[in-house]
Design a protein around this nucleic acid. Sequence first.
DNA 1: CATATTGGGACATATAATGTTCCAGTGGGA
DNA 2: TCCCACTGGAACATTATATGTCCCAATATG
Lengths: 338, 338
Amino acid sequence: MERIIRLQRKIAPDLIAVVEERYNVLKHIQYAQPIGRRALAALLGLSERVVRADVEFLKEAGLVDFSGLGMSVTEEGHNLIAELAQYVGILHGLTKLEAILAEKLGIKQVIIVPGDSELDNSVFREIGRTAASVLTEYLQDDMIIAVSGGSTMAALAETVNASMPTVTVVPARGGLGEQVEYQANIIAAVMATKLGGRYRLLHIPDGMSEEALEAVRTSDPNINEVADMIKHADILIHGIGEAHTMSMRRSHEPDVVNYIGKNCVGEALGHYFSLSGDCIYTTNSVGFRLNDLAEVGKVIAVAGGQQKAEAIVAVTRAGSQDVLVIDEAAARAIQSII
Amino acid sequence: MERIIRLQRKIAPDLIAVVEERYNVLKHIQYAQPIGRRALAALLGLSERVVRADVEFLKEAGLVDFSGLGMSVTEEGHNLIAELAQYVGILHGLTKLEAILAEKLGIKQVIIVPGDSELDNSVFREIGRTAASVLTEYLQDDMIIAVSGGSTMAALAETVNASMPTVTVVPARGGLGEQVEYQANIIAAVMATKLGGRYRLLHIPDGMSEEALEAVRTSDPNINEVADMIKHADILIHGIGEAHTMSMRRSHEPDVVNYIGKNCVGEALGHYFSLSGDCIYTTNSVGFRLNDLAEVGKVIAVAGGQQKAEAIVAVTRAGSQDVLVIDEAAARAIQSII
DNA sequence: CATATTGGGACATATAATGTTCCAGTGGGA
DNA sequence: TCCCACTGGAACATTATATGTCCCAATATG
């Protein structure tokens, strides 16, 4: 069952919308029968003509009957509703969940990729691809895109597929502590290459002292330039990490790791957040800072896996994300904790 | 699995064509990769633009890659083909089977309703509804429709749903030996009422002697009139019966029943046919005769259940049917005997 | 270097979806 | 009994989408 629906979503994603709509229409007729087209349209929030097209199909399929009083579902239609319920339940579950999470987390749009990226690597890649197509959707000429690091972002960059020669990609923050192919610099370069556009890099390690930072800043004018581009990026697209994992990976001092582990659950762009969404700790670096958010056009967050549920909640509570792309496992885990 | 596909066929039948096409395109790319749009279009027998729309979708879904050499399926696409194979196999199985049977039986169009009408009553009704919509498709003003008797035809008549006030419905043959609601007369009346049209009846029992028939004919001018309408009907729509069952039901003489049971397998419109399609025996009655077939516009045959497989083969071999509506069980049984 | 094929792009046209409006019936309530 | 608000059916202009038909620069292959 689940597998078929996965296939469906992959090979014909627009079809599920049709199925959902027809099921929904049928259900509403059952609920309010006998009911007329106009009343039904008002009930469903659809235009009369669209409802008409739907009910004409349902009539043709023998699922509804027409009479002078209005439409009503046939016995067969009644049976079908019951059967369709669980089918559409799974189908519709995610889009419904998307709406719920969007409201609860205060995000404009939540996109849930079916499956579990921790168990199924194809789901992981699918998150990347989905986020990439969201990005492509917003892309326009001469835009500046800021990207974070991380394995998810790396997968995303690989699947970007558009021609945007006038776009510039920059890393959202310095940070050289990680595996090289997951560094923001590399990801910015990869993405820019895929887009046929330009990129600028930031060669600044995470966690430098204030003094050292200042010294590098003054000695290298490129850094301030890039930092300024980051602050006014048109699109910021970033991953979300678990606070503890990230603090370990970044080799912070043991007491800092401890402090973060005790107080924080989520990390994004070098900021560590508590579950309530407060920024508890920030690594020293050049680049994006939390109060730059207001200046940025669109913010797209990407993450997957139920382990990251708390982290996702923390980060989304902290700032105003526009789009959140997650997998089904994360979505369900989030639903259970908020 | 089967159930979901049944739901799909019911709630969104046109969508399965899309799935099939995309699967087909994907499969052909895999077979001939790397291949270009034009070559692929030629291979598939589709127009270039249509292929293009498909591959653009497949590309967006990450199932194919484009390069200067042509298109090739990604690893994910490769995996998906394997998964889709069985899904589309079932989906496509029937339409493929329709084509096979149409060719082997020499019928213009075979329509297979999924399921087994012997086991599932909804399938039985679905056959009726499907045949009714085929009928509606061909219906035009002032047409004369000849109908046979039988339970399948009764189900069909109930589901007819169109407004055709200028249409006249007549029974294809006399025949009063059966259950009243399954008689051709009643079915003609029901169907005419559903269409808002007229009907004419034939009050002649099956199996009268030649002399008696002649007597009734001369005494009642109405009979010859209706008989003439039948001969020039625009649409003839009839059921198919098992020879032995029908001969019993019609209370023929014991030796006739025996003769039919030994030599015939199929019955339609009072004619009994051998498996090879030869007319072995004909009940005496007024109305349609085999050599009237040429005069009739469209012939639609309807039947269901695997028990009727041989009967269907016999009847379709006998005359030129235009459309045959059967259920999946019958279709598979037919496939195994031809 | 010539050639055939590639993907990408553009644009007119055909087809389908949709918005909008009207109509003749027909129940139910006054 | 009459009126009114509702029904389904139909029509038509408008919009959106799909499709057919070219052309182009790039590129692998000989």
